[in-house]
Amino acid sequence: MDSNELNSPGFDIPPEIKGQIAITSLDRIYNWGRSASVWPLMFGLACCAIEMICTAASRFDLARFGMEIMRPSPRQSDLMIVSGTVTKKMMPTIVRLYNQMPEPKYVLAMGACASGGGPFKEGYNVVSGVDRFIPVDVYVPGCPPTPQALLNGLMKVQEKIRGESIKNSRWYKKGSDLAEIPIPILGPDLIDPRKLDLIKNEAKLQEQA
């Protein structure tokens, strides 16, 4: 984005300092900075992770989007690319990683498995989409999505960031929205603590039957 694009309309800038000065809104410059330096979490789950690595390599060059710095630590990253099949055994870890990421944070579900279970949906160890537990911002279809598709998805994330405003952003507010997501438990099957009542009811129903 050059200074002309950044400049909010309605302000005339004298020609002699054009190109050096831009008058813009706080939202716009704040989001401009954020969207051009999204640091993804270095986090690969399955096949899609290989395409993610290819996207980061020279041919597709993630650095063009300011995203080449993949952080292995969730504390330093803004974007979680869920690249691959989410299994029940992995789910507690994913939720924990998500909870550890600082706000503002975004989630991109890469590929069919992360979006809804994909070809492995019927498997006994497969979670039918990561959005059962954590909120997803952008879904990228494909099995695996090509690097081009992933880049398109990342641009959608940038678009979303540019459309946000400090005034009503979630992470500056108080409230339940920012509460940590309870970590699932590995029992006889995966237990979602938010569904405990449902599980208890079902057990009662089964007893009666």
Binding site: K88, S128, G187, P188, I191, K195, I199, K200, A203
Partner: peptide, 27 residues
């Protein structure tokens, strides 16, 4: 949809005598 046949509308099933509070899990 496979979800519609499952009481939890999810890919989970528990043994018949399962009560989540009575047990503690440490895999």
């Amino acid at each position: 949809q496979a979800e519609s046949n499952n009481p939890y509308a999810d890919n989970i099933a528990y043994p018949p005598d399962f009560s989540p509070e009575a047990e503690s899990f440490d895999p």
